[in-house]
Structure formats: structure tokens, C-alpha cells
């Protein structure tokens, strides 16, 4: 794990959010140090995606404080921070009527502010990350497999070398090889100083990646700390075991 910085990449404190009068987040507080791989784990419907959407400025919060790279999402200064973030939603898809190359170029042009030579550098970087061949990239992405689409998206997310990468279930539904490739890439970039916030409900993946974990359940963070602390707190041998114990108050081994 890369050494953490005292200025956090993400700091959220007491965040609440209700949608259609239903409380989705009930005082979520998370702390993501720079250079860490933070895994936000929780069962389906726990509030992981809503938390992430608030952090990337897609939706507003009802109360609480949030700072991402020192700036409050949706504030007037937020647009300056956007180019330092890479975001991969869980069910994201590329533009299927565009080729892989055109998808990369479009994202690159947005991040390069229309500067074509800078954009082409981003495209080359994305091609390297995705590992897709030139012939793959010349085809429309509607013909891609799920794994190829995910690799292409990963290239788009990382092409501009963001300081902070937020990914919702990055390996969900991927084959073993692609999932392995994604995890290896995350670890490699984290070693170089990139901060990651990843959601997952796969605790083996969390154990493999996390330098810091947060357990979220029914809109509340029930644990946050280093994986070792989770094992100690729940008297568990694995993170999976700690996770189960965190969410099963009456559970006895």
C-alpha cells in the first residue's frame, strides 16, 4: 500500500439522502486518504451507489458535508475538479453506434478540452490500458463482449491519469481473466499514487484490493478502517467473515 497523505481525497461527514420519502443514506461518513484503495462494501440496496453518486456530484445530498479533492461536489468550483476524477458506474456502457476508437476519442476530447493532439495522447494511453487490438477498436462496440466493453470503459476512465478513481462494482459480471486484469491495474496505479474508491459486495475482491474498507448497511457505515482492524473488531479470520459478522448482530460462530 502506498503511504497515505494527511489531506484526504474524500471526506464525507453525516451525509443523508432520501428518495421518494425513503431514507437511502442515514448519516454516512467516510474518509478516503490519498493514495489508498478504499473498498466500500455492502449488500445490494445498502446505499453504495447513492453514496458514490453524491461523491461525483450527480445527485445532491439532503444534509451533511462532503469534500472531494478539497472541493464540495455541485459547488461552483466543482467543474474544475471534474477533470481530476475518473468514474465508472456499475452498469455503464460505451456508445454502441460508435466504434471503440471513436468512443475513446470522444472521451479524450472532453478531457482534453477539444485539444486534438492532447486527446490523441489520451487515446493511446487508453488503448494501452484496455489492451484492445486495432481491429477491435475499429468495430462498433455493439459487437463487443461484456469484458471488452468494460476494458474499453476502463481505458476511458483512466486515460487522463486521474488523481481519484471511483468505480461501482468494477469487476461485476466479468470473466476471470478480465477481472484479474482490472484488479492488477488498480493495484499498479494505486502504487503510483492514484486513489481508488471501489464498491463491491465481493469480499474476496475487497480483501485482495483494500487498504481501507467501509461496511455500509441500510444507509449507515457500520465499520470503517484498515482491513486488519476489521478482522480484530469482528474477531474474524477473513474480511468476508468480518463482513458477515458486521451485518449479523445475532450471529454466533
Amino acid at each position: 500500500m502506498k503511504g497515505t497523505d494527511e489531506t484526504p481525497a474524500i471526506k464525507a461527514d453525516g451525509v443523508t439522502k432520501s428518495i421518494k420519502k425513503k431514507k437511502i443514506l442515514d448519516g454516512v461518513s467516510i474518509y478516503v486518504p490519498k493514495g489508498s484503495i478504499y473498498v466500500l462494501a455492502g449488500p445490494n440496496g445498502a446505499g453504495k451507489t447513492t453514496t458514490i453518486r453524491i461523491l461525483v456530484g450527480l445527485i445532491s445530498r439532503d444534509s451533511g458535508k462532503v469534500e472531494v479533492l478539497g472541493v464540495e461536489p455541485q459547488s461552483p468550483e466543482w467543474d474544475k475538479v471534474k477533470s481530476k476524477i475518473g468514474y465508472l458506474p456499475e452498469d455503464a456502457s460505451p456508445y454502441e453506434r460508435l466504434s471503440g476508437w471513436e468512443n475513446l476519442l470522444f472521451t479524450a476530447l472532453l478531457y482534453a478540452d477539444g485539444d486534438r493532439s492532447k486527446a490523441l495522447n489520451y487515446v493511446n494511453k487508453a488503448i494501452e490500458i484496455s489492451g484492445l487490438s486495432r481491429s477491435d477498436l475499429s468495430r462498433r462496440t455493439s459487437s463487443y463482449s461484456k469484458g471488452m466493453k468494460r476494458r474499453l470503459l476502463l481505458g476511458q476512465v483512466l486515460m487522463h491519469e486521474p488523481e481519484l478513481v471511483i468505480m461501482d462494482e468494477p469487476t461485476s459480471g466479468l470473466d476471470v481473466f478480465t477481472a484479474y486484469r482490472v484488479k492488477r491495474l488498480i493495484k499498479e496505479l494505486a502504487r503510483k499514487g492514484t486513489t481508488f474508491l471501489i464498491t463491491t459486495h465481493d469480499m474476496k475482491e475487497a480483501e485482495e484490493l483494500a487498504s481501507r474498507v467501509g461496511f455500509i448497511h441500510e444507509g449507515r457505515i457500520v465499520f470503517e478502517g484498515e482491513p486488519g482492524e476489521a478482522l480484530d473488531m469482528y474477531n474474524a479470520e477473513t474480511l468476508e467473515e468480518a463482513f458477515v459478522r458486521a451485518f449479523s448482530r445475532d450471529y454466533r460462530w
Binding site: 453518486r53 456530484g57 450527480l58 458506474p89 472521451t107 476511458q156
Partner: peptide
């Protein structure tokens, strides 16, 4: 979502 999060 990706479009809205992009610097645009």
C-alpha cells in the same frame, strides 16, 4: 452518468 461526470 459518465457524460455528466466528465469535465463538461
Amino acid at each position: 452518468e459518465r457524460l455528466l461526470v466528465a469535465p463538461v
